[in-house]
Protein backbone atom coordinates (compact mmCIF):
# COMPACT_ATOMS: atom_id res chain seq x y z
CA UNK A 1 0.00 0.00 0.00
CA UNK A 2 1.27 3.41 -0.90
CA UNK A 3 -0.28 6.77 -0.16
CA UNK A 4 -0.11 8.97 -3.20
CA UNK A 5 -0.72 12.41 -1.85
CA UNK A 6 0.91 13.98 1.18
CA UNK A 7 -2.56 14.77 2.43
CA UNK A 8 -3.74 11.13 2.37
CA UNK A 9 -0.49 10.03 3.94
CA UNK A 10 -0.81 12.51 6.77
CA UNK A 11 -4.42 11.61 7.39
CA UNK A 12 -3.62 7.88 7.56
CA UNK A 13 -0.70 8.63 9.86
CA UNK A 14 -2.93 10.66 12.18
CA UNK A 15 -5.41 7.84 12.60
CA UNK A 16 -2.57 5.51 13.56
CA UNK A 17 -1.88 3.59 10.33
CA UNK A 18 1.54 1.96 10.73
CA UNK A 19 2.16 1.71 6.99
CA UNK A 20 1.66 5.45 6.77
CA UNK A 21 4.20 5.87 9.55
CA UNK A 22 6.66 3.73 7.58
CA UNK A 23 6.12 5.69 4.40
CA UNK A 24 6.41 9.03 6.18
CA UNK A 25 9.64 7.89 7.81
CA UNK A 26 11.17 6.59 4.58
CA UNK A 27 10.21 9.70 2.62
CA UNK A 28 11.59 12.23 5.02
CA UNK A 29 14.40 10.45 6.84
CA UNK A 30 17.13 11.54 4.39
CA UNK A 31 16.14 15.23 4.58
CA UNK A 32 15.87 15.14 8.36
CA UNK A 33 19.15 13.27 8.67
CA UNK A 34 20.98 15.79 6.49
CA UNK A 35 19.48 18.71 8.39
CA UNK A 36 20.09 17.19 11.81
CA UNK A 37 23.70 16.44 11.03
CA UNK A 38 24.23 20.03 9.94
CA UNK A 39 22.62 21.36 13.10
CA UNK A 40 24.31 19.19 15.74
CA UNK A 41 27.30 17.79 13.80
CA UNK A 42 27.02 14.46 15.54
CA UNK A 43 25.92 11.28 13.76
CA UNK A 44 24.78 9.48 16.90
CA UNK A 45 22.79 12.43 18.18
CA UNK A 46 21.21 12.95 14.77
CA UNK A 47 20.04 9.35 14.61
CA UNK A 48 18.73 9.35 18.17
CA UNK A 49 16.95 12.66 17.83
CA UNK A 50 15.13 11.52 14.69
CA UNK A 51 14.00 8.39 16.54
CA UNK A 52 12.70 10.48 19.43
CA UNK A 53 11.06 12.90 17.03
CA UNK A 54 9.09 10.19 15.22
CA UNK A 55 8.13 8.49 18.45
CA UNK A 56 6.83 11.84 19.66
CA UNK A 57 4.94 12.42 16.41
CA UNK A 58 3.37 8.97 16.63
CA UNK A 59 2.27 9.44 20.22
CA UNK A 60 0.81 12.90 19.63
CA UNK A 61 -0.45 12.17 16.14
CA UNK A 62 -4.11 12.90 16.76
CA UNK A 63 -3.35 16.35 18.09
CA UNK A 64 -0.92 17.49 15.44
CA UNK A 65 -1.95 20.10 12.94
CA UNK A 66 -2.65 19.46 9.31
CA UNK A 67 0.42 20.91 7.63
CA UNK A 68 0.22 22.76 4.34
CA UNK A 69 3.61 21.28 3.50
CA UNK A 70 4.63 18.05 5.19
CA UNK A 71 8.32 18.55 4.52
CA UNK A 72 8.33 22.07 5.94
CA UNK A 73 6.34 20.92 8.95
CA UNK A 74 8.66 18.01 9.72
CA UNK A 75 11.91 19.91 9.14
CA UNK A 76 10.61 22.90 11.11
CA UNK A 77 9.47 21.05 14.20
CA UNK A 78 12.50 18.74 14.13
CA UNK A 79 14.77 21.79 13.98
CA UNK A 80 13.04 23.36 17.00
CA UNK A 81 13.27 20.17 19.04
CA UNK A 82 16.91 19.59 18.24
CA UNK A 83 17.84 23.18 19.04
CA UNK A 84 16.02 22.94 22.35
CA UNK A 85 17.88 19.74 23.12
CA UNK A 86 21.23 21.31 22.28
CA UNK A 87 20.44 24.32 24.42
CA UNK A 88 19.51 22.09 27.36
CA UNK A 89 22.79 20.20 26.99
CA UNK A 90 24.74 23.41 26.90
CA UNK A 91 23.19 24.69 30.08
CA UNK A 92 23.78 21.29 31.76
CA UNK A 93 27.45 21.24 30.87
CA UNK A 94 27.63 24.92 31.79
CA UNK A 95 29.13 25.86 28.49
CA UNK A 96 27.52 29.17 27.83
CA UNK A 97 27.62 29.62 24.15
CA UNK A 98 27.55 33.19 22.95
CA UNK A 99 25.36 32.21 20.03
CA UNK A 100 21.65 32.46 20.55
CA UNK A 101 19.99 29.05 20.52
CA UNK A 102 17.89 30.08 17.57
CA UNK A 103 20.94 30.32 15.34
CA UNK A 104 21.89 27.29 13.35
CA UNK A 105 25.52 27.25 12.33
CA UNK A 106 25.69 25.29 9.11
CA UNK A 107 29.10 24.40 7.75
CA UNK A 108 29.43 23.06 4.24
CA UNK A 109 32.11 20.56 3.30
CA UNK A 110 34.06 20.40 0.07
CA UNK A 111 32.31 17.15 -0.93
CA UNK A 112 29.00 18.96 -0.99
CA UNK A 113 30.03 21.76 -3.29
CA UNK A 114 29.46 20.48 -6.77
CA UNK A 115 32.57 19.95 -8.79
CA UNK A 116 31.73 19.92 -12.44
CA UNK A 117 35.27 20.26 -13.65
CA UNK A 118 38.32 18.91 -11.83
CA UNK A 119 40.41 21.82 -13.01
CA UNK A 120 38.10 24.21 -11.25
CA UNK A 121 38.72 22.64 -7.88
CA UNK A 122 40.23 25.79 -6.44
CA UNK A 123 37.11 27.66 -7.55
CA UNK A 124 35.05 25.28 -5.51
CA UNK A 125 37.31 25.88 -2.53
CA UNK A 126 36.73 29.56 -2.92
CA UNK A 127 32.97 29.13 -3.10
CA UNK A 128 33.13 26.89 -0.05
CA UNK A 129 35.13 29.41 1.96
CA UNK A 130 32.81 32.24 1.01
CA UNK A 131 29.74 30.15 1.82
CA UNK A 132 31.06 29.22 5.24
CA UNK A 133 31.90 32.84 6.01
CA UNK A 134 28.41 34.12 5.30
CA UNK A 135 26.27 35.18 8.26
CA UNK A 136 24.54 32.16 9.84
CA UNK A 137 21.04 33.11 8.76
CA UNK A 138 22.09 33.52 5.11
CA UNK A 139 23.90 30.20 5.21
CA UNK A 140 20.85 28.41 6.55
CA UNK A 141 18.52 30.03 4.01
CA UNK A 142 20.85 29.07 1.13
CA UNK A 143 21.12 25.58 2.58
CA UNK A 144 17.35 25.12 2.74
CA UNK A 145 16.79 26.60 -0.69
CA UNK A 146 19.53 24.98 -2.76
CA UNK A 147 20.55 21.93 -0.73
CA UNK A 148 17.17 20.80 0.56
CA UNK A 149 15.42 22.34 -2.47
CA UNK A 150 12.59 23.84 -0.49
CA UNK A 151 10.19 26.52 -1.68
CA UNK A 152 10.40 30.03 -0.27
CA UNK A 153 7.10 29.48 1.52
CA UNK A 154 8.46 26.33 3.17
CA UNK A 155 11.60 28.14 4.31
CA UNK A 156 9.56 30.99 5.68
CA UNK A 157 7.55 28.45 7.72
CA UNK A 158 10.60 26.56 9.00
CA UNK A 159 12.52 29.64 10.07
CA UNK A 160 9.42 31.57 11.08
CA UNK A 161 10.33 34.63 9.03
CA UNK A 162 8.32 36.40 6.35
CA UNK A 163 8.36 35.45 2.68
CA UNK A 164 10.08 38.72 1.83
CA UNK A 165 12.54 38.11 4.64
CA UNK A 166 13.56 34.82 3.05
CA UNK A 167 13.94 36.40 -0.40
CA UNK A 168 16.05 39.25 0.97
CA UNK A 169 18.31 36.94 2.97
CA UNK A 170 18.71 34.66 -0.04
CA UNK A 171 19.58 37.60 -2.22
CA UNK A 172 22.16 38.98 0.18
CA UNK A 173 23.80 35.57 0.40
CA UNK A 174 23.90 35.07 -3.34
CA UNK A 175 25.27 38.57 -3.84
CA UNK A 176 28.19 37.86 -1.50
CA UNK A 177 28.84 34.60 -3.32
CA UNK A 178 28.82 36.20 -6.75
CA UNK A 179 30.94 39.04 -5.41
CA UNK A 180 33.53 36.51 -4.51
CA UNK A 181 33.26 35.02 -7.97
CA UNK A 182 34.50 38.31 -9.35
CA UNK A 183 37.35 38.00 -6.90
CA UNK A 184 37.80 34.44 -8.06
CA UNK A 185 38.29 35.56 -11.64
CA UNK A 186 41.05 37.86 -10.54
CA UNK A 187 42.63 35.05 -8.56
CA UNK A 188 42.51 32.72 -11.56
CA UNK A 189 44.15 35.42 -13.60
CA UNK A 190 46.86 35.87 -10.99
CA UNK A 191 47.47 32.15 -10.77
CA UNK A 192 47.90 32.04 -14.51
CA UNK A 193 50.29 34.94 -14.75
CA UNK A 194 52.23 34.37 -11.53
CA UNK A 195 54.60 31.75 -13.00
CA UNK A 196 55.50 34.21 -15.73
CA UNK A 197 56.11 37.05 -13.31
CA UNK A 198 58.34 34.92 -11.10
CA UNK A 199 60.31 33.48 -13.93
Amino acid sequence: MKFHSDEDLWYAFQVGNREALDQLFRSYYPSLYRYGLKICRNIHQTEESIQDFFLYLFEHRSHLGKPSSTKAYLLGSYRRRLLRQLQAERSRTRIHSQAAAEQVDIEFSIDEVLISDEKKQHVNHLILTTLNELPKRQREVLYLRYYQELSINDISEILDISYQGVVNTMYKGMKSLRGSEALKKILIFISIITPYIIS
Binding site: L21, D22, Y146
Partner: peptide
Protein backbone atom coordinates in the same frame (compact mmCIF):
# COMPACT_ATOMS: atom_id res chain seq x y z
CA UNK B 1 21.67 29.69 -6.97
CA UNK B 2 24.38 27.34 -5.78
CA UNK B 3 24.65 23.76 -6.86
CA UNK B 4 25.12 21.27 -4.08
CA UNK B 5 25.77 17.57 -3.94
CA UNK B 6 23.73 16.41 -0.93
CA UNK B 7 25.06 13.84 1.47
CA UNK B 8 24.11 10.27 0.52
CA UNK B 9 21.73 8.53 2.92
CA UNK B 10 21.67 4.83 2.03
CA UNK B 11 18.50 2.74 1.89
CA UNK B 12 20.14 0.35 4.31
CA UNK B 13 20.55 3.03 6.95
CA UNK B 14 16.93 4.14 6.46
CA UNK B 15 15.72 0.53 6.84
CA UNK B 16 17.64 -0.05 10.02
CA UNK B 17 16.51 3.27 11.52
CA UNK B 18 12.88 2.46 10.66
CA UNK B 19 13.16 -0.99 12.19
CA UNK B 20 14.52 0.53 15.37
CA UNK B 21 11.62 3.00 15.52
CA UNK B 22 9.02 0.28 15.02
CA UNK B 23 10.60 -1.82 17.75
CA UNK B 24 10.50 1.13 20.10
Amino acid sequence: GVEFRPLEVSDRSIDSALEKLNQR
